[in-house]
């Protein structure tokens, strides 16, 4: 069954098929959530919320873009919304579960590195929504300018401009 047919079946009332969408996309959502908020939110809770909002938004999904892109957009919005509520749910276990990017780093370097990453995550949240979406899709999801333009219904020039402005704004916000 194609993605389009699957969505149509769900919209026709076979809601149980939605489990397939959740199963196939949950790790992508988890990783994106982690990139966007680190351990500042309960990843499990954010991921659930993303799929609940996806289910509600499914009737609005136009098959012009891939479902994964649609999910990314919802994820970016959900994370942003939850972070703005300053919900901080971190457990000791959660913080221990995060992978170290480089095992060669010593503890001091790790702390500095983590601070930089947190600072960057905070700065990304402060970007305007369109800039944040374009940056996330380009940098984290490795989408090309063309793919972003197609999936978001933007012109190529707009995508270039949004990413340029996003990086520029990040640089202004970040300090060493």
């Amino acid at each position: 069954m194609s993605e389009q047919e699957l969505i149509q079946e769900i919209l026709n009332g076979k809601t149980d098929l939605f489990a397939q969408i959740v199963d196939e996309n949950q790790m992508n959502v988890v990783n994106l959530c982690y990139k966007l908020c680190g351990n500042r939110l309960d990843i499990d809770e954010v991921t659930q919320q993303v799929f609940v909002e996806l289910y509600q938004a499914l009737p609005r999904f136009r098959n012009e873009s891939k479902l994964s892109t649609f999910i990314y957009r919802i994820t970016v919005n959900v994370v942003s919304k939850m972070l703005s509520r300053e919900k901080r749910i971190v457990t000791e276990d959660d913080s221990l579960r995060f992978e170290r990017i480089s095992e060669e780093r010593n503890i001091e370097e790790d702390i500095i590195h983590n601070e930089r990453i947190t600072q960057l995550q905070n700065a990304i949240q402060k970007l305007k929504e369109d800039q944040r979406t374009a940056l996330v899709l380009y940098t984290f999801e490795e989408k090309s300018y063309n793919e972003i333009a197609e999936s978001m219904g933007w012109s190529l020039a707009k995508v270039e401009s949004l990413i340029f402005r996003a990086k520029n704004n990040l640089r202004k916000m970040l300090v060493k």
Binding site: V22, T47, Q121
Partner: peptide, 20 residues
């Protein structure tokens, strides 16, 4: 820093199918 953040992956196990 963006690249480092882009490479980061969540190491924990997450399965939200039933919960959702």
């Amino acid at each position: 820093t963006l690249n480092e953040l882009g490479k980061a992956t969540y190491a924990g196990e997450v399965d939200v199918v039933d919960k959702v």
